[in-house]
Amino acid sequence: MNAWSDLPFDDLDESDLLHRDGEKWAAVEAGVLSSWVADMDFPTAPAVREALRRRIEGDLGYPAWFDQSGGGPLGGVFAERMRRRFGAQVDETHVRLFTDINQAMLATLQVATRPGDAVLLHTPACPPFVDVIEKTGRRPLTVPLQASGTGWEFDPALMERAAASHDPGRCRVLFLVNPHNPTGRVFRRDELEFLAELALRHDMLVISDEVHADLTYPGHRHIPFVSLSDEIAARTVTLTSGSKAFNLSGVRCAVAHVGPKAVRGALDERHGLLFGQVGVLGVEALKAAWTQGDDWLDKVTRVLDRNRRRVAERLPDGLRYRMPEATFLAWLDCRGLCLPDPDPMPYFRDEAKVLLFSGPAFGAAGNGFVRLNFATSGPLLDEKLTRMDVTSRSRH
C-alpha cells in the first residue's frame, strides 16, 4: 500500500497510461512522462460509462433533436446545473449544442462580427482561441494578466484603453476565460462587474468560456458572467462542456447558452451541417456527467486540491508558482533557470523526460513559462516533480 492510498485515483499504472492512444500519451516517446495537454489521467466516471453502454446497446440512428430552438436535449440539464451549482437562473431555450468550445466560438464570431473586428482577451491565452480568432479574420487584442502577490490580476486601465483604442464599434467582442487557463485565476465579482461595465460602455458582445468552473477550489467561488444582470445576460454567450471536469474531450459535446436574440437567430438560420452536429454519444455522456457525476467529481476535486498543494511543496529548484484557484493546471515560471531558449518545454522534455505545454505557445506573455497538468496520481506527480527538480538543480 502506497503513501497516497487515503485518496482515490492514486493507483494509476504508468504502463497502462503509456499504452493509451489519446493525444496526451500518444505524443510521448518511451521513458517520457506526459503532463501537457489538458486531459486528466483518471478513469471515466462510472455514470458516464454506464450511460454510454446503454446508448450503444440502444438506438444509434439519427437523433430527433437536430432542431435546437427549444434548447435541445441539454437545455434543461444545463439550466438546472447552473441553478444548483452556481445559483444562476438561465433560460434553457437559449442553449445550443456544438462539438466543442472552439467550434461554438467560431460560429459565434462568424454570425456576430465582421472580418477585421477586434476581440479583446487576456494573455497568456490558450492557443486554440487565438487560432480561431485569427483564422476567422478577426484580430486578437490582448491585455496581459500580471503577477500580483500570490495570484494574477488584470489592469482595468489597460483594459479600458485597449477597448477604446480602435475605431468606434470595431472592438466588437470581449472574450473572457474564467476560470482562466493557464493561470487558474477565478475572477472576483468586482473584477467581473468592471468587465461587464466595459462591455456595456463599448457595446461589446461577451463570449465567456467557463469550462473549468466545476473545478473551483474551496475558498474561491465561480460567478457565471451571465448572472451579473439581465442586461449583461442579453449580450453574453456562455460556453462550457464536460471536457475538463469530466475528462470528456473526445466525445465532442459542448453547450453554448446564447443570450443575444440576434445571435441565436443567426445561428439557428445556419443550423444543421454548416457548423457540424453533435452525436448522440456526446449528448448522453454530458447528460450523465451533469446529472449523476457529482460524487465522482467531488472525489476528483479532492485529489486535484491535494496535487496543486503538492506542486507548491515540491516546487523544482529555480521555478516560481502561484497556486491556481481552479483548474488542474500549474503555470510555472522558469525564468530563474536562465535558459537560453524562451521556451523551457524542450529542456524539460529532453533533460527531465517530462513533457509539459510550451509557455510561448500562449503568446509572448508565456515566454519563460511552461504549463504542467497535475491531474494524475500522487506517485506519478511526485516522479515528474523529482525529475524536474534534479534537472533544474543541475543548472546551478
Rank of each mutant, 00 (worst) to 15 (best):
257 H>I: 14
248 L>M: 14
255 V>D: 12
243 S>Y: 14
236 T>N: 11
249 S>A: 04
239 L>V: 01
263 V>Q: 10
252 R>Y: 05
246 F>T: 03
239 L>Q: 02
266 A>N: 01
241 S>E: 08
241 S>R: 11
264 R>H: 05
252 R>H: 08
260 P>N: 04
248 L>G: 03
260 P>V: 10
262 A>T: 14
238 T>D: 05
253 C>Y: 04
232 I>Y: 05
239 L>N: 03
246 F>Y: 13
264 R>N: 05
252 R>V: 06
267 L>F: 11
235 R>I: 00
263 V>Y: 01
251 V>E: 14
236 T>H: 00
237 V>H: 01
238 T>Y: 02
263 V>L: 04
264 R>K: 04
262 A>C: 12
245 A>Q: 08
263 V>T: 12
251 V>P: 05
251 V>G: 06
266 A>C: 02
237 V>F: 09
233 A>E: 12
249 S>P: 15
252 R>T: 06
242 G>F: 06
236 T>F: 02
241 S>V: 00
237 V>G: 04
243 S>V: 01
244 K>E: 08
256 A>L: 13
262 A>I: 11
234 A>E: 15
263 V>C: 09
239 L>C: 04
251 V>W: 08
247 N>F: 08
240 T>Q: 09
239 L>Y: 06
264 R>F: 09
236 T>C: 01
256 A>H: 04
253 C>K: 03
245 A>L: 01
256 A>N: 08
241 S>L: 13
255 V>I: 15
252 R>M: 06
267 L>P: 15
258 V>T: 02
237 V>T: 10
243 S>P: 09
249 S>N: 05
240 T>L: 05
232 I>P: 06
256 A>Q: 02
257 H>F: 05
235 R>D: 01
238 T>A: 09
245 A>P: 09
266 A>M: 07
253 C>L: 05
232 I>N: 02
237 V>W: 09
236 T>G: 02
261 K>S: 13
244 K>Q: 07
262 A>N: 04
262 A>L: 08
240 T>D: 08
240 T>K: 00
246 F>I: 00
253 C>G: 09
249 S>F: 15
257 H>E: 05
246 F>E: 02
238 T>P: 10
263 V>G: 07
237 V>R: 00
254 A>S: 10
238 T>I: 11
255 V>G: 06
258 V>W: 03
261 K>C: 01
246 F>D: 00
252 R>G: 05
255 V>P: 09
242 G>V: 08
259 G>W: 04
254 A>I: 09
259 G>F: 09
252 R>E: 11
248 L>R: 06
245 A>S: 11
243 S>T: 14
258 V>D: 05
262 A>V: 14
261 K>D: 15
256 A>C: 11
251 V>L: 15
233 A>R: 12
250 G>L: 07
262 A>M: 01
251 V>H: 13
255 V>M: 09
259 G>R: 03
258 V>E: 06
249 S>D: 04
267 L>D: 11
238 T>K: 02
241 S>T: 05
265 G>N: 12
258 V>L: 02
258 V>H: 03
267 L>A: 13
244 K>T: 06
250 G>M: 07
237 V>M: 08
250 G>Y: 12
234 A>K: 07
252 R>W: 07
242 G>Q: 09
236 T>K: 13
243 S>N: 14
256 A>P: 07
261 K>H: 11
233 A>F: 08
244 K>D: 02
265 G>K: 00
264 R>A: 06
250 G>P: 12
247 N>L: 13
